[in-house]
């Protein structure tokens, strides 16, 4: 998705994992995805560079859809749709 589309997208849940290093954000995402419905969009905030790679791969493996990443100052906003 385009960056502008991602920035204005409605999310069902935001997971703020900026206080944790790898593997914290991935596990926070894993735990949070169980609390939303199929088709819901979730945003993961992470300051960990590795999360940018991990979440898209994890989405593919787990049957979710990775929508894209927006870089903010000092952190990333990673968007996904639950499968």
């Amino acid at each position: 998705m385009l960056q502008e589309e991602l920035k204005s997208i409605q999310v069902a849940k935001t997971v703020d994992a900026r206080g944790t290093a790898c593997p914290g954000p991935l596990l926070e995402a894993k735990k949070a995805v169980g609390t939303i419905k199929s088709g819901d969009i979730m945003e993961i905030l992470s300051a960990d560079e590795g999360t940018k790679v991990d979440i898209p791969k994890w989405c593919t493996k787990q049957g979710h859809e990775y929508l894209g990443t927006v870089e903010e100052s000092g952190y990333f906003r990673i968007f996904m749709k639950k499968g």
């Binding site: 790898c22 593997p23 991935l26 596990l27 995402a29 894993k30 994890w58 493996k61 787990q62």
Partner: peptide
């Protein structure tokens, strides 16, 4: 522990 977390993330 870190590797276990990765394994847990993908069930």
């Amino acid at each position: 522990g870190i590797i276990l977390s990765g394994a847990a993330a993908v069930d």
